Amino acid sequence: MISGLPGVGKTSVAEIAAARTASVHLSIDAVEEPILACGLQRGWQVGVAAYEAARAMAEPNLRLGRSVIIDAVNDSEDARLTWRAAAARTSSPIDFVHLVVADSQEHERRLSGRDRSLAYVGEPTWAEVQRRRADYAAWSDEVLEFDTAARTVDEVADALSARVGAR
Results as ranks from 00 to 15, higher is better:
67 S>C: 09
156 V>F: 01
62 L>K: 03
59 E>H: 03
113 G>D: 12
76 S>G: 00
67 S>E: 04
98 H>Y: 05
3 S>V: 01
99 L>C: 05
151 R>K: 00
49 A>I: 07
80 R>F: 12
84 R>V: 09
110 R>A: 08
79 A>L: 00
121 V>L: 04
5 L>K: 10
99 L>E: 02
58 A>M: 06
32 E>A: 14
48 V>K: 10
22 A>R: 12
102 A>Q: 08
65 G>E: 07
149 A>N: 14
154 D>L: 13
117 S>E: 12
6 P>V: 12
15 E>Y: 00
80 R>K: 08
140 S>P: 05
138 A>M: 02
107 H>E: 05
159 A>S: 08
107 H>D: 03
49 A>M: 14
102 A>H: 08
9 G>F: 08
131 R>C: 04
94 I>Q: 07
137 A>I: 00
36 L>H: 06
24 V>K: 03
141 D>N: 15
15 E>P: 00
85 A>N: 12
154 D>C: 07
30 A>Y: 01
111 L>C: 14
62 L>N: 01
55 R>P: 10
59 E>P: 02
47 G>A: 09
122 G>R: 10
52 E>H: 03
122 G>N: 14
68 V>C: 11
80 R>E: 08
75 D>K: 13
129 V>K: 02
12 S>K: 06
108 E>M: 10
9 G>H: 09
159 A>T: 03
55 R>F: 10
37 A>V: 04
140 S>L: 09
113 G>F: 14
162 A>M: 09
118 L>R: 15
116 R>Y: 13
97 V>A: 10
82 T>P: 03
4 G>D: 02
8 V>E: 03
103 D>R: 05
119 A>R: 07
105 Q>P: 00
102 A>N: 14
119 A>Y: 00
165 G>E: 08
3 S>N: 09
64 L>Q: 14
154 D>M: 09
59 E>W: 03
167 R>T: 10
145 E>Y: 01
48 V>I: 15
143 V>Q: 01
131 R>L: 08
13 V>C: 06
77 E>N: 10
38 C>W: 01
145 E>M: 15
110 R>T: 08
7 G>H: 04
143 V>K: 02
94 I>D: 06
145 E>A: 11
17 A>Y: 05
153 V>M: 14
99 L>M: 05
131 R>Q: 13
160 L>E: 03
101 V>M: 00
57 M>T: 01
80 R>P: 05
26 L>V: 15
85 A>F: 10
107 H>P: 04
111 L>S: 11
144 L>F: 13
135 D>V: 11
33 E>D: 05
73 V>Y: 01
87 A>G: 00
143 V>E: 02
151 R>S: 00
12 S>C: 11
152 T>W: 06
128 E>L: 09
62 L>I: 12
22 A>L: 06
63 R>K: 06
